[in-house]
Simulated scan of single mutants.
Amino acid sequence: MNHKTAAAPSWQYDERVKAGVDYEDAAIAAEYDSRHAKFRDFEKDARVVMQLLDLQPEHTVIDLGCGTGAFVIPAARSCRKVYAVDISQAMLDRCTEKARAAGLKNVETHCAGFLSYEHKGDPVDAIVSVAALHHLPDFWKAVAFKRMYDMLKPGGKLYLFDVIFTFPVESYQIEFNCWVNGMAEKAGQAMAQETIVHIRDEYSTFDWVIDGMLERAGFKTDLKRSDFPYSLSYVCVRP
C-alpha cells in the first residue's frame, strides 16, 4: 500500500529538490542495486543491522530512505511490520516490486521524506536510516532526528549509517582525492563520479556535528563505529 503525504509548509526544506544523484530517475533506480553491489553486501548488511537492533518477530520498524528495499525485505521476513519510506517514487516502486515478489504482506510504503513522513500508527520499536540523511542540510538533519525520536517508543532504537567525516578539516583535499580514487578502483568510474557528485552537491558533515544533534534530540548513543570508509554507523536509544 502506497500512501501520499500532505503538502508541506512553504518554509520547509523541499526534499524533492535534487541534491546530488537524481534517484527520481527510473533508470538510475533500476541500476542502483547492481552498482552498489560492487562494494556492498546488502543481505549481510541487513542481518548485521537486525542483530544490532535485536529485532524480534513482534517488532515494528520504519526504514527512512528505504531506497529499493535492501533492508526492508529481510526485515519484513522477520518482523511484524515494516514501514518503507522514501522520497523517490522510482526507488519505492522497486522496493514494492521486491516485496510483492517475496510474497510479503507486511510492508507499508510511503512516498515521503524525513521531514514529511507522518507516522499514523503506534510508536515503533526501531527506525533504520541507511545512506540517506546526507540529502538534508544540517539544520534539517536536526529536525529529522527529533522527528525520529518522537516516532519511537521508550526503549526504541535508531540505527543510522551514513557518509560522515572524522578527518581534520585541513586534510579534506587529500581525503576526498583518496576517496574518489578508491571508489574508481573498487567499483569503477561510474561510482567514482557518483562520489564526486556526493562530495560537491550533497550534505555530509562531521561526526561531532551528528553527535551533538543526536544528543540534543534526546538520544543516548550506545554504539558508534566505522564499518566502511568515510562512513559511520550509530545505534541510539530513546530512553
Rank of each mutant, 00 (worst) to 15 (best):
K4D: 09
A6Q: 02
A7W: 00
A7F: 00
A7S: 00
W11V: 00
R16H: 09
V17R: 00
A19Y: 05
A19W: 05
A19F: 05
A19V: 14
G20T: 05
V21K: 00
D22L: 10
E24C: 03
D25Q: 01
A27K: 13
A29C: 11
A29E: 00
A30H: 07
E31H: 10
D33S: 08
K38P: 03
F39N: 05
D41W: 09
D41Q: 14
E43N: 14
A46G: 05
R47N: 00
V48R: 00
V48I: 04
V49A: 06
V49I: 10
D54E: 12
E58A: 06
V61P: 08
V61T: 08
D63T: 07
G65V: 15
G65C: 15
C66L: 02
C66M: 04
C66R: 04
G69K: 09
A70R: 13
F71L: 09
I73F: 09
P74R: 01
K81T: 06
V82N: 04
Y83Q: 10
V85A: 08
V85L: 08
D86T: 10
S88L: 11
M91Y: 13
M91P: 11
L92I: 15
L92G: 01
D93N: 10
R94G: 04
C95K: 07
T96S: 10
E97D: 06
K98C: 06
A99K: 02
A101V: 00
G103F: 01
L104G: 05
K105L: 09
K105M: 09
V107M: 01
V107K: 03
A112S: 10
F114W: 14
L115S: 02
E118A: 12
V124A: 02
V128H: 06
V130C: 13
L133Y: 11
L133G: 04
D138K: 12
D138A: 07
F139H: 15
W140S: 03
V143T: 12
A144G: 10
A144V: 14
F145C: 12
F145S: 07
R147D: 08
M148W: 10
M148F: 10
Y149R: 07
M151T: 15
M151S: 13
M151W: 15
M151C: 12
G155F: 02
Y159C: 01
L160M: 05
T166F: 14
F167P: 14
S171N: 15
S171H: 15
Y172L: 15
Y172C: 15
I174Q: 14
I174S: 12
E175M: 15
N177A: 13
N177P: 10
C178K: 15
V180I: 13
N181I: 06
G182R: 01
K186M: 13
A187L: 04
A192V: 11
T195D: 01
T195L: 02
I196S: 06
D201T: 07
D201N: 08
E202P: 02
Y203C: 08
D211F: 03
M213W: 07
M213T: 02
L214S: 02
R216A: 08
A217T: 07
A217N: 06
G218D: 03
K220G: 11
K220S: 14
T221H: 01
S226W: 11
S226P: 04
P229I: 06
Y230I: 10
Y230L: 05
S233G: 06
Y234K: 03
Y234M: 11
C236D: 03
V237P: 04
V237M: 09
R238Q: 08
